[in-house]
């Protein structure tokens, strides 16, 4: 059986997206994405009111302080690539690479220099939100909330 190295599978998805955009032509379907960057820590008890819902979603992974560092809404199209700097020198890459089954297919990577902290693909229903948390930042962690509508 031929096994695939996880970190390399990302390149496979990348190639699909690249071929689709340059060679076969994805439809230019407009999509709206919103990225919220949150700093969660156990220093202080500040919770941005806008983050109360997210805090309630985190189960036992709760922190006492949640600060919204940035909200970035943007309109894009399927097949377009977006890179966004995250605090601490990290980078968030977003690739909406397809629409299927009523959902938006997204590839998301978070890199820290040469280290690929996360590389994932998923299908996001219209209006849904996914939380990516855990990367260390300052005295706590970063949480990235990604929502999409299309």
């Amino acid at each position: 059986m031929r096994r695939t190295a996880p970190s390399i599978r990302a390149l496979a998805v990348l190639l699909v997206a690249q071929l689709a955009v340059t060679g076969l032509g994805w439809s230019q379907t407009p999509v709206n994405l919103t990225v919220q960057v949150i700093h969660a820590s156990n220093t202080g008890t500040t919770v941005d009111p806008a983050l109360a819902k997210i805090r309630s979603q985190l189960g036992s992974m709760k922190y006492s302080s949640y600060k919204l560092l940035e909200t970035r809404p943007f309109s894009t199209t399927v097949g377009a690539k977006h890179a966004m700097p995250l605090p601490g020198g990290k980078t968030l890459d977003l690739y909406p690479y397809g629409l299927s089954g009523g959902g938006l297919e997204l590839m998301v990577t978070i890199t820290d220099g040469a280290k690929r902290l996360l590389d994932t693909t998923f299908r996001l229903a219209n209006g849904a939100t996914i939380l990516v948390g855990g990367p260390a930042y300052a005295d706590g962690v970063l949480i990235v909330a990604i929502s999409g509508s299309f």
Partner: peptide
């Protein structure tokens, strides 16, 4: 062809490529 499949299924050729893959 992928283009014909895309027309039949009313989707993009890239979607056809992805589904087949």
């Amino acid at each position: 062809s992928y283009e014909e499949i895309a027309k039949t299924l009313d989707c993009a050729t890239g979607t056809v490529m992805s589904r087949l893959h």
